[in-house]
């Protein structure tokens, strides 16, 4: 087992109930020789809502960049299993910066390892809220690594409930719009009887969350989004260079 695999095993141990959903993409792209595993824990942000969690609540951390990882590690210390779902690969001139996430996964790895999380611990799914920011329009030459989540990237509400998870808490920044992709996942969970809650990052009290599925013809719409807007990476996940437009012909005036 190399260092990348060792680090992934810390975040997603093979015996973990929810490890099957973890995405190794960013771990696979880490520079083997430069992986750092600090012995000391990074300072954890105090989150009042975390004190209100019980073992029957799944958490979805829809936070920008490495904030999601730091909060995941914080929840790891509280007995949760942080599950990395980052699915946009790294490249030069990326539309979504991911190196801070890769670094955070390394720096927080030790903290998660020392947390001795139970195999059947409730999950804390970590997402990058910037994954498909509509204001980002990658142009030619950029590495377009915007990505979305699908219901297939999460366990179903039925499976969560069979594992004793009755509620799901979405943690996010209120200033950011909830993405249609995650809205679809949460709406399905609600349909399966999972109670939805929402908390502002740094906020105190979780409040009930109501979401409606954004797409009538979900598979068609979601696939159209992928087919038309985003770029799959052949090595896995999303990310490819936006091609340069063809140069004009040589028939102009000199």
């Amino acid at each position: 087992m190399n260092e990348r695999e060792r680090l992934f095993e810390i975040w997603a141990p093979s015996r973990g109930v929810f490890s099957a959903w973890a995405k190794p993409l960013l771990f696979a792209q880490m520079d083997e020789a430069r992986i750092v595993r600090p012995a000391t824990d990074p300072p954890a942000p105090i989150q009042p809502w975390a004190a209100r969690l019980d073992g029957r609540t799944a958490v979805v951390l829809d936070l920008p960049g490495d904030a999601s990882v730091w909060h995941g590690a914080l929840l790891g210390a509280a007995g949760y299993r942080p599950v990395p779902l980052f699915n946009g690969s790294d490249g030069q001139q990326p539309a979504v910066e991911v190196r801070s996430i890769m670094l955070a996964l390394q720096h927080a790895g030790g903290q998660v390892e020392r947390a001795s999380i139970a195999d059947d611990a409730p999950p804390a799914f970590m997402l990058d809220a910037r994954r498909c920011d509509p204001s980002v329009r990658p142009s030619a030459g950029w590495f377009d690594n915007r990505w979305v989540v699908f219901p297939q990237d999460f366990p179903s509400g039925r499976l969560l409930r069979s594992r004793g998870v009755e509620r799901a808490l979405l943690v996010r920044e209120q200033s950011r719009r909830l993405g249609d992709d995650l809205r679809e996942v949460l709406a399905r969970w609600a349909k399966d009887g999972v109670e939805l809650l929402e908390a502002e990052v740094g906020g105190a009290e979780p409040v009930p969350l109501k979401v409606k599925a954004p797409w009538g013809l979900r598979p068609l719409a979601a696939l159209a989004l992928v087919a038309l807007g985003l770029r799959a990476n052949s090595a896995g996940g999303f990310g490819a260079r936006v091609p340069m437009p063809p140069q004009g012909g040589g028939t102009g005036f000199a």
């Binding site: 190794p24 696979a28 090595a235 896995g236």
Partner: peptide
């Protein structure tokens, strides 16, 4: 086959 083969081994 390309999609089956090209995916990084760690995945």
């Amino acid at each position: 086959y390309h999609r089956a083969i090209a995916v990084a081994p760690m995945l």
